[in-house]
Design a protein around this nucleic acid. Structure first.
Length: 622
RNA sequence: GCGCCCGUAGCUCAGACGGAUAGAGCGGCAGCCUCCGGAGCUGCAGGUCAGAGGUUCGAAUCCUCUCGGGCGCACCA
């Protein structure tokens, strides 16, 4: 369940806690910290400073009496006392290493189903790098949760009947005068064509706002699923969705279920929820004021205190449902709170399940009914996500409300340099906007990175296989998207995203390739790696490396617990750097002393295993 | 106006629960190919952790205020 180092640390903490309780008669939590370097110690306890006041003694004398009276676990080899009163423990390196090699943990299946919803790109234009961050974060998170034992179902919500698709339909029908056939015959990349058309339609509306009437008509047609506009709408949504799925598969991102809004509407999920809300008094019909004629939910809890308007419209005065209403219903479906269920069909081209309005397949996986629901969606949506949770709470679904998690993350903006590179002059950074057609398209970025990979590969006289270039490109982009703390906005910059040096995906991959080469060379030359001789002295640099490696499981647990994928990126970088340093300093194949050679080989093998298991989570190959 | 987030090296970012001399990468400078892939390694330069108070043995980290940025507070999603 947790890593070796953590196991050892906890054992020592427990022992120390017991000692402090027995010897001083004080019950206190023991905090452990890391000393500045392994030369100073492996684990440090600032306990003496804490006890100083209570015991009315100097920290140094307390530390001294702990050292002489405490009987620590045998893994502790030595105890030092430093300046203000730190208790610095040194671990028995050999013993630790032996246990590390023997240590194997098995993660138990948690028997908890988690739905992770991510990507959710409107199917009306090409995906841009902002969408990429969502998908990469969501996909990495899913992999992490699976790794720690959850049953994970990945859903991608397709808003195929929304305003954005409607606008592109207006573009085809009213602006371009295209018929169904003409839309079908537009060559690929179809999503690129729509990208331009969509922003064109926006300015077309601005020229003459009365044209917005066309949007309303189209929207109605899409919702009813009738007429030529609906037909074109479904072609657009389908064709663009196909583009998106292809783009994401280039990054190794896949889904278990595509949920179409069209089917959510057809299933009438909301009407069930609406009557329940009325019955439980969660919504009421507003009789007067600015919300007259609307069904509203009151936001009374402390969370919403200070809101200018504490009334949230769920059903508009014209009888249509707001986003929050729809999302609440969908959220309830995910928890299995609704009787109704979709019909499903397998989309063979991408081998992904999706909801359908046609005849569904009888045999399909059981979707929904999750214990925990994680929605990956940028931080600007947190107000709405909070309202959805509040809706669950007011309906009496306390547990589901608790288990509705908004995985919130910062947006991707374009640095002024990046903006300039795509032909936009700005003062500072600029937010991406599909409406204005401002943004770096995901496929363009991928193509650029793939081209760079090819170039770099050919420089190294390696026969350039396309797959390999694609894998490197995917790693570069994925790593760029997860290396930042999630709440941080990213200022997209081509140089940084394309970087193959320093803290980059290719640097990590390269480290793993190097390590692997060692073993290829060993077997090539018929050098056998025997059993490790634990009599060997373990130097500080190797020891630091070993301690780092022993924390791999702990790092994964932390990422899962805190829902912070960047911790994996940081661990990988730290480990890779350390490895590369040792790699240069300590040759393996060239080493003639078999004891040294075996030791190094074994440690590097350990590195390769631990490193790859984490690298897989951030998407080495996809 | 109310609420949330942020301000760390020239640039992009890390800094567990408050701990010891604040760390990386890029860029700059100086080295390293008798080498297991140089997508690398080694070293140097570069910081009043936005500012001011406070809490305490100890603060980049916690509290208050000030300044400066971002975001949210729809019958849009």
């Amino acid at each position: 369940m947790i890593g070796m180092f953590e196991v050892v640390k906890e054992e020592i903490c427990k022992s120390l806690k017991g000692f402090v309780s027995d010897f001083f008669g004080i019950d206190t939590d023991i905090v452990a910290t890391s000393p500045p370097s392994v030369a100073v110690g492996d684990i440090a306890f600032p306990i003496a400073m804490r006890l100083a006041r209570v015991l009315n003694a100097t920290p140094m004398s307390i530390a001294e009496s702990i050292r002489s009276n405490w009987n620590p676990p045998p893994i502790v080899k030595k105890i030092d006392i430093a300046k203000p009163g730190f208790l610095n423990l040194f671990l028995d390196r050999k013993r630790f290493l032996i246990e590390l090699f023997e240590y194997s943990f098995s993660r138990k299946k948690k028997d908890v189903k988690v739905i992770v919803e991510h990507t959710n790109i409107n199917p009306n234009k090409a995906a841009h790098v902002g969408h990429l961050r969502n998908a990469v974060l969501g996909d990495t998170l899913s992999r992490i949760l699976r790794k720690v034992g959850y049953e994970v179902e990945v859903q991608n919500y397709i808003d195929d009947t929304g305003v954005q698709v409607a606008d592109v339909v207006v573009g085809f029908v009213d602006l371009k005068g295209f018929d169904v056939k003409q839309v079908q015959e537009i060559p690929e990349p179809f999503d690129y064509f729509c990208w331009d058309l969509y922003s064109e339609v926006q300015s077309w509306y601005e020229e003459d706002p009365s044209r917005l009437q066309l949007r309303r008509e189209t929207l109605r047609s899409l919702e009813e699923g009738k007429g030529i506009r609906a037909e074109i709408g479904s072609i657009v949504a389908r064709r663009v969705l196909r583009c998106h799925l292809k783009t994401m598969s280039r990054l190794g991102i896949y889904y278990d279920l595509l949920t179409h809004e069209r089917d959510v509407l057809a299933l009438n999920l909301f009407s069930v929820v609406f009557s329940e809300m009325k019955r439980k008094g969660v919504v009421e019909l507003e009789k007067e004021g600015k919300n007259k004629g609307c069904w509203i939910m009151r936001l009374r809890s402390e969370e919403f205190a200070g809101l200018s308007d504490p009334d949230k419209v769920i059903v508009r005065s014209d009888g249509t449902v707001t986003y929050v209403g729809k999302d609440l219903a969908y959220q309830m479906w995910k928890f299995g709170l609704l009787e109704k269920d979709f019909k499903y069909t397998l989309w063979e081209e991408f081998s992904v399940w999706e909801t359908t309005d046609k005849i569904g397949t009888l045999e399909h996986p059981l979707f929904g009914r999750a214990k925990v629901v994680i929605n990956v969606i940028d931080k600007r949506q947190s107000y709405l996500q909070n309202i959805v949770r509040e809706g669950l709470r007011q309906l009496g679904y306390k547990e589901e409300a608790e288990n509705s998690i908004h995985f919130s993350y910062g947006v991707v903006n374009l640095s002024r340099k990046a903006a300039k590179q795509i032909g936009i002059e700005t003062d500072g950074s600029i937010g991406m906007s599909g409406r204005k057609g401002i943004g770096v398209k995901a496929d363009d970025l991928l193509d650029t990175v793939v081209a760079k990979s090819r170039l770099e590969l050919s420089k190294r006289y390696i026969d350039c296989r396309d797959e390999e270039a694609a894998v490197i490109a995917a790693a570069a982009i994925r790593f760029y998207m997860i290396k930042y703390l999630k709440h941080q906005d990213i200022e997209f910059d081509f140089d940084l995203a394309l970087s193959f040096e320093g803290d980059s995906g290719p640097y990590l991959q390269y480290s793993a390739v190097r390590a692997k080469k060692i073993f290829d060379k060993l077997s090539e030359r018929g050098i056998k790696v025997g059993e490790i001789d634990f009599g060997i002295e373990i130097a500080d640099d190797f020891w630091e490396f070993i301690v780092l490696l022993s924390q791999s499981e702990q790092v994964i647990e932390k990422a899962a617990k805190e829902l912070e994928v960047s911790v994996l990126a940081h661990w990988l970088l730290e480990v890779a750097k350390k490895f590369n340093s040792l790699y240069h300093k300590y040759p393996v194949v060239r080493e003639n002393n078999p004891v040294q050679r075996t030791f190094r080989a074994k440690i590097f093998r350990l590195f390769l295993d631990k490193f790859n298991s984490v690298l897989d989570l951030v998407g080495k190959e996809g």
